[in-house]
Amino acid sequence: HDVTIHAGDKTIHVHGASEEFLRIIEQAKRDGIHEEELLRLIEELVK
C-alpha cells in the first residue's frame, strides 16, 4: 500500500505500508492521538 498521511503541516508518504501499519494509524486517529505523537509513531514504524 502507498499511504499519504497528513499530520498538521506535514505530509508523510509511506510506500509499501503493511496492513498492520494501516490499522495502527487508523486506530491512532480514532483514539484522537495528537498529530505530533502520530508523527513519532509513524517514524518508529517506518525505520
Rank of each mutant, 00 (worst) to 15 (best):
E26Q: 09
I24E: 05
L39K: 05
V14R: 01
E36F: 10
L45N: 02
K10P: 03
L39E: 06
D31R: 01
E19W: 08
K10H: 12
H34K: 15
L38G: 00
H1Y: 15
L38D: 00
R30T: 11
V3T: 07
G32T: 03
R23S: 09
D9E: 08
I24V: 11
V3Q: 03
Q27M: 08
T11P: 05
E35Y: 14
T4F: 08
E44G: 06
K29T: 12
L38W: 05
I25V: 11
R23Q: 13
I24S: 05
I25G: 00
Q27F: 03
H1P: 10
G8M: 05
H6D: 08
S18A: 05
G16L: 09
R30P: 01
I12S: 03
I12Y: 11
L45G: 01
E20T: 07
L22T: 05
T4L: 10
E37T: 06
L39P: 00
F21Q: 08
V3I: 15
G8V: 05
T11A: 07
D2H: 14
T11G: 04
G16S: 09
E19Q: 11
D9C: 06
G16R: 02
I42F: 13
L41G: 00
I12M: 07
E44F: 12
I12L: 09
E43N: 08
K29N: 08
I42N: 00
A28R: 01
D31C: 08
K47S: 14
I42P: 00
L41D: 00
I5A: 02
H15S: 12
T4P: 03
H6F: 07
G32H: 05
A17N: 03
L41Y: 05
E26S: 05
T4V: 15
L22D: 03
H15K: 06
G8W: 05
E37I: 06
E20M: 07
H6T: 14
V46P: 01
G16W: 11
L41Q: 01
E26L: 09
K10R: 10
G16C: 04
S18G: 07
R40P: 00
G8Y: 07
I24R: 10
K47Y: 13
I5C: 04
K10I: 15
V46W: 10
E37A: 13
H34M: 14
Q27K: 12
K10N: 09
E43R: 07
E43D: 12
E43H: 08
D31Y: 04
R23I: 10
E43A: 13
D9Y: 03
V3G: 04
L39R: 05
E44D: 11
R23A: 14
K47G: 14
I12D: 02
L39C: 08
E26Y: 06
F21C: 04
I5K: 01
L39W: 14
E35S: 14
V46R: 06
A7Y: 15
L39Q: 07
L41P: 00
I42T: 01
L22I: 14
I5F: 08
K29C: 13
Q27W: 05
L39T: 05
D2E: 12
Q27D: 10
L41R: 01
I42A: 02
H15N: 10
D9R: 01
A7Q: 06
L22R: 06
D31S: 07
E26P: 00
R23F: 11
A17F: 14
V14C: 03
V3E: 03
T4K: 03
A28I: 04
S18C: 03
K29R: 13
H34F: 10
H13A: 06
T11N: 07
I42L: 09
A7M: 14
E37K: 04
H13Y: 11
H15C: 07
I5N: 02
G8F: 08
R23G: 07
R30E: 12
I42R: 00
G16M: 11
E20Q: 07
I25E: 00
S18Y: 06
S18T: 15
I24P: 00
K10V: 14
V46H: 07
H6E: 12
V14W: 11
S18W: 09
L39M: 12
E35T: 13
G32Q: 06
I25C: 04
L41W: 05
E26F: 04
E20K: 03
D31Q: 11
V3H: 07
G8N: 06
F21V: 12
E36I: 10
A7K: 03
I33G: 01
T4I: 15
L45F: 15
L45S: 02
E36P: 05
G32S: 04
E20Y: 09
G32P: 01
R23D: 09
R23K: 14
E43P: 00
E37H: 07
T4N: 07
H15L: 14
G16F: 13
E37N: 06
I12Q: 02
L41E: 00
L39I: 14
H13D: 06
F21W: 13
H6Y: 07
L45T: 02
I33N: 01
E20W: 11
H34G: 15
F21D: 05
G32M: 05
H34W: 09
R30S: 11
E19D: 14
